[in-house]
Computed example of a mutant assay.
Amino acid sequence: MEPTADQTPVTGDGFPGSGRRVLVTGAAGGLGRALARAFAANGDRVALHYASRRAEAEETAAALPGGGHTVLGADLTDAARAGSLVEAAAEALGGIDVLVNNAAARTAAHPPVGTPAADWVAAWERHVAVNLLAPAHLSHAAAQRMIAQGGGGRIVNVGSRGAFRGEPDHPAYGATKAGLHALGQSLAVALGPHGIAVASVAPGFIDTDRVAHRLSGAEGEELRSQSPFGRVAVPEDVAAAVLWLASPQAQWSSGTILDVNGASYLRT
């Protein structure tokens, strides 16, 4: 029997162990799909958000273990839709215990030298809207819901190693991921008194369908050589880290930025 909102098993600190209500943004495929699978395999119920790839999101949801999952569409460049998405997820799941801010934009290359002004502005506006403002609005809405429910919650942001090493061809991506990390740390301090832990992961290159073409030839060799393990990440590598950060046991890691890049970039 699936746990209802009143039957959700909880740990000693009042935060659910499994049977949680989880919203994953950008869950149609790639890392988002792996995240949805990881939480569902943990016994959680998942709301899978998509922006435009509805069929893929529904396919992902249909293959998840367990039941009670739902698929929700929203354009996260519209600030008003962020709050609506959280409310829709909470309504479908009976509440919300975990938010994973995974949806992200990474437009065409836009180096500062050689990029026309109009393209430069468009790239920055797109990245700021999806990578920074949307997680901020989603986190605000989810926090209000978690506080009203009582018992705490978890917010996990998917950032990037590019926030630290620099992204010369994609500066808006690197900058907004750095902002996302900073947002997570601010929220960790602000929401801790309410039992809500907030953390981020900073992955390196992840082998997904959308970027698989880059792993052939010389570029693929260079990407794999960045890690001493001689490979790039698979989505499950990152999903496992997110699942742990969302667990009751990870409360004391609130505010952390966890590198998940196979030692391909080391911060000091």
Rank of each mutant, 00 (worst) to 15 (best):
T176I: 03
A246H: 06
T107C: 13
T11Y: 00
R161A: 14
L76V: 05
V211T: 15
R33H: 14
P248K: 06
L266N: 08
V100F: 01
A105Y: 15
G150K: 04
L187A: 12
V24E: 03
V121Q: 10
A122R: 15
D209I: 06
S253H: 10
R37L: 08
H170F: 13
V130M: 10
P235Q: 03
M1A: 12
A212P: 09
L99R: 01
P135Q: 13
F164Q: 07
L187H: 07
V46P: 00
M146D: 08
L35Q: 00
A188H: 03
S139M: 06
G12P: 05
E125G: 10
G255S: 14
D97C: 04
P203Q: 11
S254W: 04
A129Y: 11
T107L: 15
L31M: 08
R54H: 03
P135R: 12
A28Y: 12
R21A: 12
T268W: 10
S139Q: 04
D207Y: 13
G17H: 04
L138C: 13
T11C: 06
F229N: 08
G262A: 08
V232F: 01
A263E: 13
A218F: 08
A233K: 10
V113C: 10
I155W: 01
G83F: 01
R161V: 15
A27F: 06
N102W: 04
H137A: 12
L93H: 01
G73A: 15
P228W: 03
T70H: 03
P203F: 09
G83P: 01
L99Y: 01
G66C: 05
R37A: 07
A175D: 04
G26F: 03
L258V: 14
A134S: 15
